[in-house]
Design a protein around this nucleic acid. Structure first.
Length: 872
DNA sequence: CACGGTACTTAGCATTGGAAGG
DNA sequence: CCTTCCAATGCTAAGTACCGTG
């Protein structure tokens, strides 16, 4: 191994430096420059650490995570992505009490070490208090067990096996078996047991869900439209046409009847009046969601019920590359003109009031409105703002105002605060008026007609002027974002449509009729010089088709992913540097779901990277770390300056390659100097039609969801428990994709509130239980009807409260686990909605529990077409 | 192939509105 | 009925991908 490596090293390496292209040299120069800037920035940053919002933000996230990690004291070092897994494992390992106590002690110690983290401390304290509320010593054990049960709702020992399997599969997904050997052994055993288990359980279910062989056949049968319209030829599975609508309708009707039949099944083990009521509500909801549309569909001939229920996915689609044939709309809604401040609101310069000209005042108000934000204290922000502000000043103002630090905007700021306060305090009538006005605007401007259908527009308002705030450490923060005038706006619509009219006395920059694009309105923004668009809502045909197609591409990747993985593993051994780099990068993209990492213009945006643009400084190699070998530590800022931090053990070959790539490089050099996204994507295109780097993210996200749902859902759980399982599966994906969020400002408080509720419930429960006991004794004594009734009443009450308590605890768990994880992004952009729809149908979970109204609109196609046996 | 430009998806944060709770 | 609180929605920045051109 090493021999073969050494040889190649030299070969590869000799090419590496000598053949440096001009581009690379230039790049290097730039980098040096940037690096200096970078360093300066860093120093500055260090000096005024407390001032740096972003950094603090991400640091904090990091700190929390580190703590989490330490708390868990895990040998397996890979953090972010596997945090969830770890937690889970932790939970499972300690199902016997003695260990629990040990763990608590350990936690205690960890807690003491971290005297700085106020947040964590707070949370821990809370936990502590909760713990102390229990009076006897067995508390911890009891609580943990209880939690466990609620979480898993498994009735027997199959829990562990169940979980282990899931982990197993996750690991095997990437078929790099080199890791976690000692754990593996144990799992191997469990796996066997599981196999038996699986066979059993599938019989119990009554629906022997055969694996793929069958799944595919069935899929072709049952799914009304097996794949979306192709843009590029999609050979095997797709003839480029939708099945005929007629055919679909029959299928649909059949399914509706089926649903109807199954309905009684929805009756679960709920009891008590309230539960009944709730059940009734479910049914009612269903009636609204399911039956009404059916009725409407039947009435369709009689009444005209057009756009709302248009099923574009049942129609054929033009193949000539045009996006539409007809497009008519009313144009954008422009930002309201500036309203000068009332006379009593003053701006002070150097302690003296100064009346500003309208343009200068407007820009000043932008700053004033942001005064509460930390970034108005940042040097860069203030500098950029001041520079742009001066451009709006009269020459007199320019000469008077020479130092931004002498400007006092507070009175203006107060005024705006008062205004927004007043808005909140408005009477109902006034609020209603505003609402109606908004509704009118929506009706007028919010829709367009595209090919005979009325479609909702996404963002029909032109962005108002203001101060630009980029994310992270953006060099342009604070710059003035100009007001967009009609003269800046390009309109796109059909030649034969009624063109939108510009406001009186103005004209559009251009009216064009380009049906190769989907946008209705565009303009060029002045900060980055990029083009902004007005496009249709996600529920529209044009977006939906694209979305559907995206998932179909990902499904095609599923079919050949094994081949691809074998390929890149082979390429790790290539003689050519560029191929090795490509292969390693692809491995990262596949395994870690990294983004592609386009090059960006330096100095124009925050310094963030993706896979191909990773720099040497972003990874660290550890030949040995704890009990693992070949660990790579990633630490960089990704999209939106969200930090990606992860330690992952990799295969030896990858590790050696990385060492090779790092040779003779400076920290600010590119890790993959022979690679960029276009090279990578070109390569991918050759491997599979339509394949690009981002497809891997979609694929891995969706497949993970499907697997996790399979593993986490247990048939006899209650609905809330199932939803928790769903969220857990969703969360696994969000962690994979590194979808983070700042913990909500009110997080601690809301957690506390919830905990209070839980405690109250618990008290209530024990009181009611006592009452039940009392009633029983009384009944035993008297044996009369009244006391018998009483017992029944109390019994039901206990049951009801237990249920409520459980639900609350589920909620608490869910929220706690979600503290820094955003589920929305993956749900909206990465998870094939048909997986969720199938799951919902399989387990009779009301779809509203996982998709809100907007999401249901966006995924209408999936909700309509996916059956419960849908396989991604 | 670099590069500038365009179109479209993906992203997190701020605000809002309406349900739950008092 | 009013207030509180959170999920839904709105907003727009920041990515990916790909094209034409020289």
């Amino acid at each position: 191994m090493s021999g073969d490596h050494g040889e190649r090293d030299s070969q590869v390496n000799s090419g590496s430096r000598a053949n440096d292209s001009h581009k690379h040299k230039d790049k290097h120069k730039d980098k040096e420059h940037r690096h200096k800037e970078h360093k300066k920035d860093k120093e500055r940053e260090k000096a005024k650490y407390s001032n740096s919002e972003h950094r603090e933000h991400s640091e904090k996230k990091h700190r929390d995570k580190e703590k989490e990690k330490e708390r868990l004291k895990h040998s397996d070092g890979s953090v972010d992505r596997h945090r969830e897994k770890q937690k889970e494992e932790e939970r499972l390992k300690h199902s016997d009490g003695s260990v629990d106590r040990h763990r608590e002690k350990q936690k205690e110690e960890e807690r003491l070490k971290h005297s700085d983290g106020s947040v964590d401390r707070h949370r821990e304290k809370q936990k502590e208090e909760e713990r102390l509320k229990h009076s006897d010593g067995s508390v911890d054990r009891h609580r943990e067990k209880q939690k466990e049960e609620e979480r898993l709702k498994h009735s027997d020992g199959s829990v562990d096996r169940h979980r282990e399997k899931q982990k197993e599969e996750e690991r095997l997904k990437h078929s790099d078996g080199s890791v976690d050997r000692h754990r593996e052994k144990q799992k191997e055993k469990d796996k066997e047991k599981r196999r038996e288990e699986k066979v059993k359980s599938s019989h119990v279910e009554g629906k022997p869900k055969k694996e793929k062989e069958n799944g595919h056949a069935r899929e072709m049968w049952s799914s009304p439209s097996p794949s979306p319209p192709p843009i590029k030829s999609e050979p095997e599975e797709d003839n480029g046409l939708y099945p005929s609508p007629k055919h679909n309708k029959t299928l649909k009707r059949e399914r509706d009847e089926e649903e109807f039949e199954y309905k009684p099944k929805k009756m679960k083990t709920e009891n008590g009046k309230k539960a009944k009521k709730r059940k009734q509500e479910y049914e009612d909801e269903e009636e609204e969601e399911e039956i009404k549309p059916k009725k409407k569909a039947k009435d369709k001939k009689a009444k005209k019920e057009p756009e709302e229920k248009w099923k574009w996915w049942e129609e054929e689609r033009s193949t000539d590359g045009s996006k539409w044939k007809f497009l008519e709309h009313k144009g954008p809604v422009l930002a309201p003109p500036y309203e000068p401040l009332p006379g009593h609101v003053r701006f002070f310069y150097d302690g003296k009031p100064l009346r500003l000209s309208a343009p200068a005042e407007e820009v000043a108000t932008f700053f004033a409105k942001m005064l509460d934000h930390e970034y108005t204290t940042k040097d860069m922000f203030r500098k950029n703002f001041y520079k742009d502000w001066r451009k709006e000043m009269t020459s007199e103002e320019k000469s008077k105002i020479t130092d931004i630090n002498k400007c006092n905007f507070t009175e203006m700021s107060e005024y705006f605060k008062a205004q927004s306060e007043a808005r909140k305090q408005m009477s109902k009538d006034e609020k209603l008026k505003i609402k109606e006005e908004n509704e009118r605007i929506l009706q007028e401007y919010g829709f367009c007609v595209m090919d005979n259908h009325k479609e909702r527009i996404g963002n029909f308002r032109i962005e108002p002027p203001g101060l630009f705030r980029g994310r992270g450490d953006h060099p342009k923060m604070g710059m003035l974002k100009r007001r967009i005038r009609p003269e800046d706006i390009i309109i796109n619509c059909s030649k034969d449509s009624k063109h939108p009219k510009p406001p009186q006395g103005t004209r559009w920059k251009e009216v064009r009729h380009d049906n190769k694009v989907t946008w209705l309105v565009s303009w060029t923004e002045n900060i980055q010089g990029s083009i902004k668009y007005i496009m249709l809502n996600p529920s529209s045909r044009i977006k939906g088709e694209k979305d559907w197609q995206k998932y179909e591409t990902a499904r095609r990747l599923k079919k050949c992913v094994d081949r691809l993985r074998a390929q890149y593993r082979e390429d790790w051994k290539s003689k050519e540097m560029r191929i090795r780099q490509r292969a390693v990068a692809l491995y990262f993209i596949d395994k870690l779901a990294l983004r592609a990492g386009n090059e960006k213009e330096e100095g124009e945006t925050a310094d963030t990277v993706g896979c191909c643009s990773l720099r040497v400084e972003h990874i660290k190699l550890y030949p040995k770390m704890d009990d693992q070998e070949y660990v790579v530590e990633f630490d960089f800022l990704g999209k939106d300056s969200i930090r990606y931090y992860n330690k992952m053990p990799v295969e030896k070959r990858v590790f050696k390659n990385l060492q090779l790539f790092l040779e003779n490089k400076q920290p600010e050099d590119d890790l993959f100097d022979r690679l960029n996204t276009s090279i990578l994507n070109k390569h991918l295109q050759e491997l599979m039609d339509g394949l690009t780097a981002k497809v891997f993210r979609t694929y891995n996200a969706s497949i993970t969801l499907q697997q996790q749902l399979k593993e986490l859902t247990s048939p006899d759980e209650s609905i809330p428990a199932k939803i928790l399982s769903y969220n857990r599966a969703n969360r696994a994906v969000a962690i994979l994709c590194n979808h983070q969020r700042a913990p909500p400002k009110t997080f601690e408080k809301s957690m506390q509130n919830l905990q209070t509720k839980i405690d109250e419930k618990q008290k209530q429960l024990s009181t009611t239980r006592k009452q039940l006991k009392g009633a029983k004794t009384e009944h035993k004594a008297s044996h009369d009807d009244r006391s018998k009734k009483m017992v029944e009443v109390k019994r039901k009450a206990v049951q009801r409260i237990e249920e409520q308590l459980m639900k609350l605890q589920m909620q608490a768990t869910d929220r706690e686990e979600n503290k820094q994880i955003a589920l929305g992004t993956s749900k909206l952009n990465y998870l094939d909605p048909r997986i969720s729809v199938a799951w919902v149908k399989k387990w009779d979970v009301p779809i509203e529990k996982i998709y809100n109204k907007t999401q249901r609109e966006k995924f209408a196609w999936a909700i309509d077409m996916a059956e419960e046996d849908y396989e991604f």
